[in-house]
Design a protein around this nucleic acid. Structure first.
Lengths: 166, 166
DNA sequence: ACAACATAGTTCAGTCGCTGAAACAAATCG
DNA sequence: CGATTTGTTTCAGCGACTGAACTATGTTGT
């Protein structure tokens, strides 16, 4: 994510946005680094992490905020790498559940360990600061958790204007 | 960004990471919404926002954390849309400066206004909460600002392992 | 002054993550 | 039982982005 450095009507709001973006960029970079270090791409790693317990592919698509067809592709690669297998869902013969193999569980554990060690933001705060940050984030997010994660909400009609060539 | 929901060694750290990712997802969704509403793609909008003052293209690549060749493409589209023009840099005849046109300035203003209105996290906090959140983020980020924004740092050698098929 | 090298931007081929439509199988509903 | 929905797969294609090759201009060392 690019830096946001602009003339803002509200300097404090501006700094919060900047720092939230920066915090995210740091988390993302850490995630990418760890992920690459164990030989996974970012979406592969996300999928692996979700698989503490077997998941149906559609459910996984929900967790990853992507289309089911994309889950098919990710699962293909992880299955080819021997990290998970597809097994039929006992309750619905159309559905398949993704299940970690031994190797998958082992790698998932290693991934989580690396992910937590040296995670930015968290590792630079002491216990009290972390508690404070957490309280703030809880307040800021109370009530809009699911709304916050929806992607590509429809544009507001009255603000629309013709697109620029891409 | 996908949800992070895992068995973590540290529940508090886990929640902080989750909430930071969620905060980012919300900011990103808001940015995408506003951006689409004015007819821009996300990278186009980032570029426009950076252009409060004329910028050399290489500098812009730095701000956007991408390769210079990508700035060329973005600038092409914005120039075709009449939002900016390339002018020669007075100090270096190899370089070009990106300068907003009248239309570009107008749209940039509209973008900033929409971006700030209804921005998640910020708009749900009162003044005191915002100050508190800001203080926490400042603490968390003191000293690692530039490190945090580096992309794709080299993988640590001793943690590496063979990649999974992509 | 001039060769050698560094730097700014462009062009182009190609990768990656992801979407959307079509197709098939299995479940559910009238 | 037929009609419709749902879970997954396949495939074509898009947008963001990289990396290498190229041109043109600046810089440096002898």
């Amino acid at each position: 994510m690019a830096e946001i450095r602009i003339a803002w009507p509200d300097p404090e709001g501006q700094e919060i946005v900047e720092r939230l973006f920066a915090a995210d960029a740091a988390l993302r970079a850490h995630f990418e680094q760890v992920t690459a270090a164990v030989g996974l791409t970012v979406p592969q790693a996300h999928t692996l992490i979700q698989l503490q317990e077997p998941q149906r592919m559609g459910t996984m698509a929900g967790h990853l905020h992507c289309e089911p067809s994309h889950v098919t592709a990710i699962a293909d690669s992880l299955e080819a790498g021997g990290l998970l297998r597809r097994e039929p869902d006992p309750d619905d013969r159309r559905a398949k559940r993704l299940v970690l193999t031994e190797a998958g569980q082992e790698l998932r554990g290693r991934l989580l360990k690396l992910l937590f060690e040296g995670a930015p933001i968290i590792s630079t705060l002491d216990a009290e600061q972390r508690a404070g940050l957490l309280a703030m984030l809880r307040m800021a997010q109370s009530g809009d958790g699911h709304r916050a994660l929806r992607r590509f909400p429809a544009a507001r009609g009255d603000d629309s204007c013709p697109p620029v060539p891409s």
